[in-house]
């Protein structure tokens, strides 16, 4: 990471976040390439044995959302003590990770959006049907517009997944041994809201469906309002967890 304007004292809280996104993207670049190649190659290979009627990219997108949460939690858990020890204030840390989450979430959300639209063209050229599973049935994305509409949801979902992962990472560091338990309520809210918004089946462990499906019947406006509330409340929780987080001594 360059120590030029990124880390100048008056601006480092703003530059560090996007710099983290850049470094993380560089670090995981081969993962991204692998995901894109596999998502294109897999339906092609499967098409020799059966008809293709589901969007491979939507599975990639859901795995990517979980990956985003892991990146957020993992980075926060491992970097927060190191950054504070290197003189970053908690406020700077909060702002940095907020911008990291926003830029990472938007980048990945945009990638998913572009992938779904590109997949629509790919499937159309191959004569396959692009659809997603919802309530036990396949919902066809019949046009570029429908594919784009579904893809646009991930621009909201990825920042929420990042926020959820960051809260889990911060709580796990803050309350050693018990902090990870916050993963349960966080997962229910994040996965439930995302599923309700995308109107697909819940992702994740099967038992979670009983918890998350309640939100499936909500109207889109209510879900968006709940989404916005979750982002605001989640950001407030993340701020509270980090603003006086201690740097623990390492175990010998």
């Amino acid at each position: 990471m360059s120590a030029t304007k990124t880390l100048q004292l008056p601006t480092r809280r703003y530059w560090l976040g996007p710099a983290l996104t850049w470094e993380a993207l560089k670090y995981y670049r081969y993962w991204f390439v692998a995901a894109i190649v596999l998502s294109a190659l897999l339906p092609f290979l499967v098409s020799f044995s059966r008809d293709i009627d589901t969007s491979t990219w939507s599975y990639t997108a859901n795995i990517g959302a979980i990956f985003t949460a892991i990146v957020a939690g993992g980075f926060l858990y491992s970097l927060a003590p190191s950054f504070i020890a290197n003189s970053l204030t908690r406020r700077e840390l909060v702002v940095s990770f907020g911008l990291f989450g926003l830029t990472w979430g938007l980048f990945c959300g945009a990638l998913v959006f572009a992938g779904l639209v590109a997949e629509h063209a790919y499937y159309g050229a191959m004569g396959w049907t692009q659809s997603i599973e919802y309530s036990g049935e396949l919902t066809v994305m019949a046009s570029f517009g429908q594919a784009a509409e579904h893809g646009a949801l991930y621009l909201l979902a990825y920042p929420l997944y990042f926020l959820g992962g960051a809260i889990i990472g911060a709580a796990t560091y803050r309350w050693e041994g018990t902090g990870w338990l916050i993963a349960f309520p966080v997962a229910v809210v994040v996965i439930g809201l995302t599923d309700a918004l995308s109107r697909t089946v819940p992702t994740g462990p099967d038992w979670l469906r009983f918890v998350t499906e309640y939100a499936q019947g909500w109207g889109r406006g209510a879900v968006l309002a709940a989404f916005a509330a979750a982002l605001v409340i989640g950001a407030a929780i993340g701020y509270r967890l980090l603003i006086d987080i201690p740097v623990r001594a390492k175990k010998a």
Partner: peptide, 12 residues
């Protein structure tokens, strides 16, 4: 070592 550069005075 480079993480130390968060500190403006760090002498890489």
């Amino acid at each position: 070592i480079e993480t130390g550069e968060i500190r403006p005075s760090f002498d890489r």
